[in-house]
Structures are given as structure tokens and as C-alpha cells.
Simulated assay, not measured.
Amino acid sequence: MAAPMELFCWAGGWGLPSVDPDCLAVLTYARFTGAPLKVHKVTNPWRRAGAQDNPWPHTVPFIRQKYNADYDLSARQGADTLAFVSLLEEKLLPVLIHTFWVDAKNYVEHTRKWYAEAMPFPLNFFLPNRMHKRQLQRLQLMWGDSCLEDEEELEKEMYREALECLTLLSQRLGDQKFFFGDSPASLDAFVFSHLAPLLKARLPNGKLQQHLKSLQNLCDYCTSILSLYFPWDGGEWPGLEPRLLLCWAWGRSQ
């Protein structure tokens, strides 16, 4: 019998199966493809997976499997996927990091609060702050030295571009169920994993969130994926044969 396919990821919250975009992307992609897995929701990123033959993974979430949601895409659709992924990484992701981890009100009242409550003692006293520092470093790498010269002006420009990015996504999706029609692809997993936390989080300072909520088709898109592919919130996905899949957000945050 095949060894169990296991997914280790941050626990869910805000009505999502995982609050971390990287873990959420892997969960969604696996669900789109029908990839079999057993999900372990973790709140202690220092805890080993348990077995000697299952070493601590220090990389971004990865999948080792034969499932491919993009099998039927045309060459042009494949190129569009790369283009939109690059667009989101360049224009939207930095502002998402800023929204959740840098904006003081959001960080203190929402992000840090959630992770501190989710983590066991004594990690909840210091690990959220360590994650915060890592995200600041990550953002500085994305924005470059210019973020030190005129941070306020750069922030305005980055938010403007992020708003435009969301509008472009809304226009590209139109009235379709998914970005390439009636069947989901890897682009849908990537987009959903970035939009759903922004849509569902209860942010005290939510200017980017408010713009997303004004784009009804993107809101319906996220809600539809949640209801279709995550109708339960359990560790095991029923009716699926196990293989191997590991996912840790800790690789990004440490």
C-alpha cells in the first residue's frame, strides 16, 4: 500500500482552510487536481513531522506528484499563466505583505493576534515578532533601497498598482467561473490563495480589502471555490488514496 500523502500547513482561520497564502495555494491546487492527501493543521512550526525518513523541510511548499491542473491548457494560456503569476508577485504580493505585516494597526490587532492565539506557549510570545521581522526583510528585498528613501510615496505608488492589479484580474475573469473557462488551473489556485485571505480577514485598516470587495466577480469567485472545494474543515480529505505531499509555510517565515 502506498505511503500516506501528507500536507503540513498552518491551521485555518477567517473561514479559510489555511491562513497562509503559500499553504492555501498548495491546498487549492491539490483539490483542483484531485491529488490525494491527508492534511495536518499545525500551530507549532518548530515541531518535526515525526519520522526520521520525513525530515524537516525548510523550503517553500512543494508537491511531488503526477497531478497537473494545466494539462489541457493551450500554449497561449500557459503564457498567460506565467504573465499573471508574475504580475501578482510584482504588484499585489508586496502590498499584501504590507497590509498584513507592516501596517501597524492590522499587524497588532489582526495578524499578530491571530498567530499568537494559534501558537502554543511559549512560542506565542516571540515567534510572531520574529515572523514580522522576516516579512519586513522580505518586503525590503522586493522594494529595494528605494523603500528607505521615500517610504510614504512608495507606499502610495505600490497601493495604486495593487488596486490596478485587482481591477485587471476582475476584467480578465469577467463572468467566467475560472480564468480559463469552466475548469480550474494552477493560475486559479495562485489567484485564490492571494485573494481569499484578503477578502476574509477582519482587517481594521482595509483600503485594499475594500477595493477587492467592490469587485463582485472576484468575491463570487473566491466564495465559489471555497464552497466547491473546501466544504469541510477537517485534516483528512475523504475518499482519496494517500501519496506524498509536504507543505510548510515556515520556510518562508524563518
Rank of each mutant, 00 (worst) to 15 (best):
H98F: 11
D22R: 09
T167L: 05
A3H: 03
H98N: 07
S253C: 04
C247G: 15
M142G: 00
L93A: 13
F230Q: 08
K207R: 15
R112C: 12
N124V: 04
Q52S: 06
T99W: 06
E236D: 15
V42N: 07
L226A: 10
F178H: 10
P4H: 02
L27C: 02
S227G: 06
C165F: 05
Y29W: 05
E164G: 01
G251L: 03
D145A: 11
A249C: 01
G34D: 06
R160S: 14
N106C: 08
G234M: 02
L245A: 14
N124W: 10
N44S: 12
F230H: 13
E6P: 00
A189V: 04
I97V: 15
L148F: 15
G12C: 02
R243T: 15
R76Y: 02
P21Q: 08
L195M: 03
L82H: 04
L218N: 06
G234E: 13
Q210Y: 07
V95T: 13
H211Y: 01
W101S: 04
W114R: 11
A116C: 09
I225D: 01
L37I: 15
R48I: 05
D150R: 11
L215K: 07
L244F: 12
P61E: 08
D220T: 13
P238V: 12
W143F: 06
N217P: 08
F62M: 12
A83D: 09
A185Q: 08
E6N: 06
S86K: 13
H211P: 00
G234A: 06
H194A: 10
K133V: 11
L154T: 09
M119E: 07
P17L: 06
A69E: 01
T33D: 01
Q210W: 07
A79F: 04
R31Q: 14
M1E: 09
V85N: 02
D22N: 12
K41M: 09
W46Q: 07
S253Y: 12
L139F: 13
L226Q: 11
L228C: 09
S214L: 01
L148E: 13
H132N: 13
